[in-house]
Write a protein that binds this DNA or RNA. Structure first.
Lengths: 136, 136
DNA sequence: CTAATTGCAAATTGTTTGCATATTC
DNA sequence: GAATATGCAAACAATTTGCAATTAG
């Protein structure tokens, strides 16, 4: 979803387009890498909107999650948000914390009694760079 | 791994068999359902070992994770430990929080640069019971 | 105008840490 | 007895909450 589409959705749902929401959406829809943490985003956006509160940021992020604009999963310590719309897994390096997308080529699950809404797939390990570093 | 095998492992690794560790291991290896949270386990074990500290419990749990006796994953809010040795996913009800094992019949991932160590698969949704309850 | 949203600061929650005391081997 | 573990209480970090002040529509 691009900036315009997201804004359109908010309007349709009668959700107010505040400065803080606009900046958050602008930033998210313009980023290259898909994932980010609240803290990370807060550091960047605070420069543009000095009064921005972390509470507002969280509320907007979860609003966007509800709208299906972004996705969230936990890296074990904190919540990671992801703007990449294609379902995929995440490889997290336990040493440096780097997160990379992993394609899910095939996934077949056993029976689930209930309504399943989303899947979070996290692969933990050690990334290339850290593997090299460890060898030294 | 059963009680004896776990104890054997600890001895081999020269890890001291304290009362608290024994009780924790006993409890874990004897439980029917595989998953539990630290808090849950603490509530139960505190009755047996009134002096037990949550710090000791955590340290033992992570010790067991390192030994490969139990597994851990995050449900988003807290760490869930699992004694079920067969790799599987978890279905978490977003309403009641209930966690159920889900068989992973097939999983094919794209290329991962680095050493992958473990996979955590969480399916979020609403369980049968809560679906029924919501209908009312 | 008025209902929604913000910022603040305090509260929560799960987990971790530092350290003196106690325990296994 | 020496090295490890434990318990405690304080520290942490990421959220979340309550509420009065502000703002978009």
């Amino acid at each position: 979803m691009n900036l315009e589409e997201i804004v359109e959705q908010l309007k349709t749902k009668k959700i107010k387009l505040t400065t803080q929401r606009m900046e958050i959406i602008k930033f998210i829809s313009g980023m290259k890498k898909g994932h980010f943490e609240a803290k990370e985003l807060f550091a960047v956006l605070s420069k543009k909107i000095p009064s921005l509160s972390i509470a507002t940021l969280y509320s907007t992020l979860y609003l966007l999650v509800d709208l299906g604009v972004i996705y969230s999963f936990s890296d074990g310590q904190r919540t990671v948000f992801d703007f990449n719309p294609v379902p995929h897994g995440h490889f997290i390096c336990k040493i440096c914390g780097r997160i990379e997308d992993v394609e899910i080529k095939k996934l077949e699950l056993g029976e689930i009694k209930g309504k399943r809404e989303k899947i979070e797939l996290v692969i933990r390990g050690v990334c290339e760079d850290c593997l090299k570093r460890v060898k030294d």
